[in-house]
Nucleic acid binder design. Structure first.
Lengths: 223, 223
DNA sequence: GACTGTATCAACAGTGTGTTGAGTAGGTCA
DNA sequence: TGACCTACTCAACACACTGTTGATACAGTC
């Protein structure tokens, strides 16, 4: 992948006012207990139906004590999402390399599969993150940054393939990339949460990949 | 359009327990005032930052009186959305017909343009509808029904084009349709709300249409 | 002119959030 | 040892919001 322009790939920033107010102590256990309680409850019911008291009770502390560890319910979820996103973005560079080595078909599948796998195991957390975006600016910013990273990667791939002559020209690469990444976001989210209509879990990648390949490598000559 | 199988196209159902508890009276004004207040406020700030009291005040009544007209804040938004969706779906049959007459390129553009136009003027309402889906089952059902209608239409078009031989075979038509419709939903929503990254308002249709045409009519021979 | 249905709201009950202020318990250094 | 700091804890409070009750006013009938 030496030839493929490297997209800016900064790791998630160390969440500013998030975690505890001060640092260090045996209360690390409590903090972990809160996070674990949140993860567990989020697989049971949506964030809007989980109160700070639920999280506190689950961690064996009172509500005011909860506020010693986190400034709000949202902050807990953002901490969880930060980690999930870091996991999902982990293999990004190797993946990008594999994309060039293995060829577009296999490379694309590997990339999207990797991504999908990271979220599939915790649909509740994904839903919570999505919900948060509607009320929380920090959640929007975090997700925007993630999307931007993927868009940059895909843009680079499309431009590279076009410059090699393996992909035909068309709408600007970045714009194609934005639409394709958005399609994946929406389709995979719907599948994960079993929305109706949505693609079946074992079909979603096949379908998305066909659209990606046709959008990038195909030309349309409708007759 | 006689040859194109007609997708089930039921109009939005007459919202059950929504509107007023009982009927008729001069209080129609009040009901309208509440709806107008909601539409106005939603263009200013998100639903989560609008209280029942805001709506009541805006309509010149007290909070309990609000509950005489609507069972909840959500019900107001759902009423607004119902109408918006009815507007957007209005021209559906003519559009389908035009699609077959004008050919895929122009027909598709006309369809998507029509749809986009219906929502463009009230981004606040669109956002509210999207927000509602996270907490409100009725909102989810309503949107699912709308999506299902579009998916059915697009599926029919794809199958028709494939049977005519103008579109090549590929992944099942319905699955392609789902992914494409989801892409539009997400991309247009992002554009409408000015998310980052998103497509510019004057670019979104060009880009989406290219992807639709390539996905439906193109084949991918990467290499 | 008693009756019925529309329309209205003060006052209440309940559930959630985030804050205050008063503490306890352990370590550290004089 | 005891004064002192810092991590940690929570009962009680102050708010903001939702949804309900019960009383009331006011129209139109019959």
């Amino acid at each position: 992948m030496a030839t493929l322009p490297q997209a800016k790939s900064s790791p998630a920033p160390a969440a500013k006012g998030r975690g505890r107010r001060t640092t260090r102590a045996s209360g690390d256990d409590r903090e972990r207990a809160i996070l674990e309680t949140a993860e567990r409850l989020l697989e049971e019911r949506p964030l809007s139906e989980i109160s700070v008291d639920d999280l506190a009770k689950g961690a064996g502390i009172s509500r005011p004590t909860f506020y010693f560890y986190f400034p709000s319910k949202d902050a807990v979820v953002l901490t969880i999402i930060d980690r999930l996103v870091a996991d999902a973005g982990g293999g990004r560079e190797e993946i990008l390399a594999r994309l060039a080595d293995a060829g577009p078909q296999a490379g694309l599948r590997a990339s999207l599969e990797n991504l999908y796998a990271a979220f599939r195991s915790r649909p509740g957390v994904v839903r919570a993150g999505s919900d948060l975006r509607t009320t929380n600016q920090e959640a929007r910013d975090l997700w925007a940054q993630v999307m931007e990273g993927w868009v940059a990667d895909v843009t680079a791939v499309i431009e590279f393939e076009r410059s090699r002559g393996t992909a035909p020209p068309g709408q600007p690469a970045r714009e194609m990339a934005i639409a394709l990444v958005q399609m994946n976001e929406r389709a995979q989210y719907a599948t994960l949460l079993g929305e109706e209509p949505s693609l079946e879990g074992d079909r979603v990648l096949d379908v998305l990949i066909e659209i990606w390949l046709r959008a990038i490598y195909g030309t349309a000559e409708p007759g």
